[in-house]
């Protein structure tokens, strides 16, 4: 367990270093802080002096070291547009994105699992065939088109749910703005989270079905039948647990896709989360904010991957975590 955590930590450090180098290069190459600070009227000599004071004429490694030290202390620079520390701006938007992603994942788990299981145990049933057809089509519909369709049908034509913004939020612990606990917030959450989950659903339905069919062919399932167990017990206790193992792994790999998808969803629904902020920052060339976003996303990424591995270890008794870590 300790070795596993150490290896994970090592890998996390490696990933974070790469990300920080990239984000530092962005800050370094794009946008001149001196220009931002003093404007056009200052003479080149004075500028150069200021550059020296700020350490901008030091070597790349020295500057990077300074940047990394700042990053460890939570200082990722100041947003040009908001005039606030970039990290604070990002973290303020974090709850919105997390709530969106959380709801989408919840919907995926609750719907994809029974659908995949049904399609696997009754492959000839008309319902499973329909399900596979829908998921084949769903796999081919890009997420932004799903979102557009949702907006068109539910917002413009039927006028059931609002299509942009986050609605009313409630504050918790002084920093977490939640939209989960009032009707307005939930109705705003409906379309974005549904779009996000519909985009992820076909992958998981197909995966669960394929894995489940594999498991159902195995000897231990046949042995379970020969013991005279009920079909329900065989499908949901014997088969499902084994099915979920590879599904969890793939779920971990999909974490990156989820981040990319949240950017698309948030842009379409103008959801005030990190992705929306990121796209805004890109179009405003707000480099500190862009690099801060990358670092925060990298951190989230490392955390989710570790979390997924831990869940995998819990589900699968044959894997000792020590021998598993990547």
């Amino acid at each position: 367990m300790l070795i596993f955590l150490l290896r994970r930590l090592l890998q996390a450090c490696f990933v974070m270093i790469i990300i920080s180098v990239i984000s530092f290069s962005i800050q370094d190459k794009l946008g001149d802080p001196v220009q931002q600070m003093v404007g056009m009227t200052v003479s080149p000599e004075e500028r150069n002096q200021l550059r020296n004071e700020l350490g901008l004429n030091d070597g790349f490694l020295v500057q990077y070291w300074r940047f990394a030290k700042g990053a460890v202390h939570g200082d990722l620079g100041t947003s040009y547009y908001y005039k606030e520390p970039a990290l604070d701006v990002i973290l303020e938007k974090l709850p919105a994105t997390l709530e969106l992603a959380f709801c989408a994942i919840l919907i995926v788990i609750l719907i994809a699992t029974p659908c995949g299981v049904l399609a696997a145990i009754k492959p000839k049933h008309i319902l499973s065939r329909l399900l596979m057809l829908i998921s084949s089509i769903g796999l081919s519909v890009p997420i932004f088109i799903v979102a557009i369709l949702m907006v068109y049908i539910f917002s413009i034509e039927l006028n059931i749910a609002p299509s942009f913004g986050r609605g009313q939020t409630t504050e918790f612990f002084g920093f977490w703005e939640s939209g989960l606990f009032n009707k307005d917030g939930l109705s705003h959450l409906l379309l974005p989270s549904l779009s996000l989950s519909i985009a992820l659903m076909p992958i998981f339905v197909r995966l669960i079905r394929a894995e489940m069919m594999d498991v159902l062919q195995s000897e231990y399932i046949r042995f379970a039948w020969s013991k005279g167990l009920s079909a329900r017990r065989i499908y949901f206790i014997h088969a499902l647990k084994n099915t979920m193992l590879p599904v969890i792994t793939v779920g971990g790999i999909q974490a990156g896709t989820l981040v990319a998808y949240t950017i698309l969803t948030e842009t379409i629904f103008q959801w005030p989360g990190m992705g929306f902020l990121f796209m805004d920052a890109v179009s405003r060339v707000d480099t500190p904010l862009v690099s801060a976003y990358l670092i925060v996303v990298g951190g989230i990424f490392v955390i989710t991957n570790t979390f997924v591995d831990l869940i995998y270890g819990l589900f699968n008794p044959t894997v000792r975590l020590a021998s598993h870590g990547l």
Partner: peptide, 16 residues
């Protein structure tokens, strides 16, 4: 009627 299968490594469910 109970059955015993060929390969004991495959017959028991690994996660239970």
């Amino acid at each position: 009627i109970a059955m015993i299968f060929q390969d004991p490594m495959m017959t028991l469910n690994p996660v239970l």
